[in-house]
Amino acid sequence: MFQLSEEGLQKVQTELKRYESRQSAVIPALYIAQKENGGHVTSEVIDHLSQVMDIPVSRINEVFKFYTMFNQKNVGKYHVQICNNISCVLNGSRELTQHILESFHCKLNDMTLDGKLTVSSVECLGACGMAPMMQINEDYHENLTPEKAVEILKGLK
């Protein structure tokens, strides 16, 4: 059974008091719980949040399903998100994506066997002038070439 840590619980309680309405704490709470659950959210996580926040499961679930930053399935230790919107495509992001997938023998959105990488193709991340780019977990890597990107990924522990 998923349970928030003592610290996570504290954080959720703080969020519940932070805004004018308790419902506003759902998005921050999902972030907190996703992190503690190793990078994705399950129905157990939602049930637990519903209990500790006293907000119906359905209300949390619809929010969880709406936003792309909440993962519905497990992702690798490093979630690599490559922007493939227009400015990045104009600067070779698809070739970069292909090169990464081939180098690590993986498919989009499928975690590598060692659990290290999940490579996703995503929409505009606001780095259009520094295209192509990828986001590894929380960090942006910009002005990439296919070779540079693979080198960065190979350097991950």
């Binding site: 919107n85 227009i86 505009c124 606001g126 259009c128 520094m130």
Partner: peptide, 11 residues
């Protein structure tokens, strides 16, 4: 919530 493709000015 800057998200319009091509936009990176608010950042």
């Amino acid at each position: 919530d800057e998200g319009e493709p091509g936009t990176f000015k608010d950042r």
